[in-house]
Design a protein around this nucleic acid. Sequence first.
DNA 1: CCTATATAGTTGCTACACCAACTTTTTCCA
DNA 2: TGGAAAAAGTTGGTGTAGCAACTATATAGG
Lengths: 144, 144
Amino acid sequence: MNLGFQDYISIKLHKTDLNLTNEIKSRLEPYNLAPEQNLIMMLLWEEDGLTQNQLAQKLNKDKTNVARMASNLEKKGFITRSLSIEDRRSLKLYLTEEGKQLGEKVIPIAEEFNDVVCNGITNEELMELERILNKMNKNVDQPK
Amino acid sequence: MNLGFQDYISIKLHKTDLNLTNEIKSRLEPYNLAPEQNLIMMLLWEEDGLTQNQLAQKLNKDKTNVARMASNLEKKGFITRSLSIEDRRSLKLYLTEEGKQLGEKVIPIAEEFNDVVCNGITNEELMELERILNKMNKNVDQPK
DNA sequence: CCTATATAGTTGCTACACCAACTTTTTCCA
DNA sequence: TGGAAAAAGTTGGTGTAGCAACTATATAGG
């Protein structure tokens, strides 16, 4: 076969991902929010009071990462963590007033970023892209 | 607009990238090679004697990462680093015998991985995917 | 019931990823 | 030609990312 470095689709994907991550990182910097911390906040803005475990599943991440990111968000004052009453093993994350207000500034930034990324790309292309990404995910079978 | 968490294309891309990275990571583990270290090796297997700076450009990465990865590869015995004669600021990386032999085992792994990722995906789809990724890269304008 | 197992979270470890600040050469031009 | 600016690497700092091993709680079966 003999593929060259440029021929690996995973490498191209990886580069694009890094590119996008860098861009959103710089856009969020003024708000003292790192990209992955923002993902947690986005989920909390949609539904307050999620546990770390629920977040880990939605984000598809190792629970250790979520724990550390949540800890950082708590230090920054955007959320509080309290033991769940139903299950005292788990921590529920709640937005602080500051965290709620942050959403009003940051959500528009995220939507604007999405617009920029999708500029000149049709809906059909986006759906095609999703379809292909899903195929790849299934192919490597890390079950989400 | 009010996008939900699931609607951001960059998030989907990111998840797929992490998925693929995890898979190749576990495949390379038996060879004592981390995914990004492997990218450096792939470039050296194509062309021995590249400088760290050249690698950083090809990989689209910060020079600090390349420096540390190269240092790790040196510790593992896969490469040596020597000052360039033409420009004594730069370090050239050369494969050791062990590094060369590693390629004969790892390149097939990488190609097999690529096959798995692309399973059930047509060439047209791959080209479409690349086209869209390129658009996104241009849109965020990190000039590659 | 009460131990075996599972689950939520934390800590320690390695590997990216980028920035800022620094050293050492090189280059450029006034 | 000599000093400013640029370029290649390194170091230190923060923020992911996943694994292994650990604590604490919850659940299930004998």
